[in-house]
Design a protein around this nucleic acid. Structure first.
Length: 511
RNA sequence: GGUCCCGUCGUCUAGCGGCCUAGGACGCCGCCCUCUCACGGCGGUAGCGAGGGUUCAAAUCCCUUCGGGACUACCA
């Protein structure tokens, strides 16, 4: 039988889903979809200090926006629970974690350690090998009683091998190995009894039958401990027994005994340091608010550390599912280049069909407060009418708004520089010539409007710029809009003429 | 300090001993187009961190060195 391909994304819910996390999620989701496997979403909220349900919901919304759907995951907010290997909220899995820790202790693979944080700190000393190996490993029952009598609460540590190496074949980095002498006995259960990442994460991955672990390089050195835990939990039957004890579903049938690891290169800021909140807008939500297309975000994220080996850069999500290979992921860290993201976004916008682009533009106009929410039928129609003329002019959805925002307002907002530059005295005669002729037009079409301008250009012997710019400024208040005849033709003729008359007074007086 | 990892144009990358006087994309610069802003077209700018080897031949292999990063928690 074939082993089920199961990957997971397990964010700690504090703050927003940022680009690094989204990239990790994507690099897990892509192989899962390609292999017809399962993508499991597990929220690791064991850090009571920082985890919030709002953050978890925000992350799920961000995943939704990106189109990274999960097959199993918790019920949070509007998201329903899915899957048979829950709970998917790690804090709810504590009974399992405690059962495993207890059994590890009983089997002698783990032990209680009573040092205080201060003692540990002191023992670590300055820069020397502070690998915790011996410590309270072999305390006698009397010694433990003694510590308890002092009021100390123990943590539970796992006994690590004293010699030898641990190695694995990393899907992106190739062979990786560590000396056990470098890895200390680690804490799996805190003094207050709560499980640490070292316990909860492995136990849950194993219990849920995760076959491939994709995560950031910052977790590379956590891998030896997880491999050890796997050896302690699976062959010994400890996990199976604990699962049964707490009444959780057993591991999925056919779940592989060993997992494949893939450690992704870090995403860094311009300072070459691990990307974090202080690097500015790295929250996925911020890109959505800025008007980046979700499929472009996915495309760009995929290129952060991966390439197919050819010059292709623009992919649809389906193409990525087909082309993506973990073993072609780069090993060196990548800088998250927003300029390139924006450029790709512009290119993608140009490829959108007009109706689709119009649909996507509406929320951007609403975010800018230019139109109502919900939009009136007139507003919606006008945004859609402008859409084809806005393509190629803006890198994001939001940036398209200012080009035509004036059309949705009853009052003109004058751009002082435009007025100063284009409504000089010479503009007066031009406007006086054009206004009645445009008003007299029976066919309010781009061609007819253009004909009026062409006629004015030859009659008044001015350049096209001198003819069009004054009209543009007087009607829109700005010097920059999509092509004028096309734009005017989309508006009500009377409305345009009214603005031309009203704006005539903005023209500077002679001298 | 220790352990581990990384190092091709400013940025993201192709490259896995000859196809490379290093290709693409973004950025930047110039020209063309042009009613504004853009789009588009054309051209240009710029890189194998350094030093030693190995080889007929090295961006590609080896060593050293320099630089950067991650980890080194009762965070994840």
């Amino acid at each position: 039988m074939s082993t089920p391909f199961r990957v997971r994304f397990c964010p700690a819910p504090s703050g927003w889903l940022h680009v690094g996390g989204a990239r990790t999620a994507l690099f897990s989701w892509l192989p899962a979809r390609r292999e017809g496997g399962s993508f499991v979403l597990r929220i690791e909220d064991t850090d009571a200090e920082r985890a919030t349900i709002e953050s978890a919901e925000g992350m799920m919304d961000a995943l939704d926006w990106l189109g990274l759907d999960w097959d199993e995951g918790p019920a949070i907010g509007s998201h329903a629970e899915k899957g048979d290997h829950g709970p998917y909220l790690q804090s709810l899995r504590r009974p399992l974690h405690e059962a495993v820790a207890r059994r590890l202790l009983e089997a002698g693979h783990a032990y209680e350690a009573f040092e205080t944080a201060e003692e540990l700190e002191a023992a670590r000393g300055e820069g020397h090998g502070h690998v915790y190996k011996t410590g309270h490993r072999d305390l006698t029952e009397e010694q433990r009683e003694q510590f308890r009598a002092e009021g100390r609460e123990p943590v539970i540590r796992v006994r690590t091998p004293d010699t030898g190496v641990v190695s694995w074949e990393d899907a992106v980095r190739g062979p990786v190995s560590f000396e056990w002498t470098e890895i200390g006995d680690f804490v799996i259960s805190r003094a207050d009894g709560s499980p640490t990442y070292q316990l909860a994460n492995v136990v849950d991955d194993l219990a849920q039958g995760i076959s491939h672990i994709v995560r950031g390089e910052d977790l590379l050195s956590a891998t030896p401990r997880q491999i050890l835990m796997t050896d302690l939990l699976l062959p010994t039957g400890i996990l199976a027994a604990a699962l049964e004890e707490v009444g959780y579903a057993p591991r999925p049938a056919g779940a592989p005994p060993v997992m494949a690891y893939a450690h992704l290169p870090l995403l860094v800021g311009e300072d070459r340091k691990k990307l974090s909140k202080r690097h500015g807008d790295v929250a996925i939500e911020a890109f959505e608010k800025d008007g980046i297309l979700p499929e472009v975000m996915v495309n760009f994220l995929a290129l952060c550390g991966w390439s197919a080996g050819d010059d292709k850069e623009r992919y649809t999500t389906d193409e990525l599912v087909q082309a993506f290979e973990l073993d072609r992921v780069k090993v060196s860290p990548a800088f998250f280049d927003t300029a390139k993201l924006r450029s790709m976004n512009q290119a993608a916008i140009q490829d959108l069909d007009d109706a689709d682009y119009g649909d996507r533009l509406v929320p951007a106009f609403q975010r800018a407060g230019v139109i109502d929410t919900p939009a009136t039928p007139e507003q919606d129609a006008l945004v859609h009418a402008f859409a084809p003329h806005l393509k190629g002019r803006a890198q994001t959805l939001n940036e398209a708004v200012p080009f035509v925002a004036w059309a949705f307002s009853d009052t003109v907002e004058w751009d002082d520089k435009a007025v100063k530059k284009w409504l000089k005295p010479a503009a007066g005669p031009v406007l006086d010539h054009l206004t009645p002729r445009l008003e007299a037009l029976e066919a309010w079409t781009p061609e007819a409007i253009m004909a009026v301008f062409e006629d004015a250009v030859s009659t008044l012997e001015v350049g096209m710029g001198k003819a069009m710019q004054p009209v543009r400024v007087v009607v829109t208040g700005t010097a920059v809009t999509p092509p004028l005849p096309e734009t005017l033709a989309l508006l009500d003729q009377g409305w345009v003429i009214d603005r031309m008359r009203a704006g005539r007074s903005k023209v500077a007086a002679e001298g």
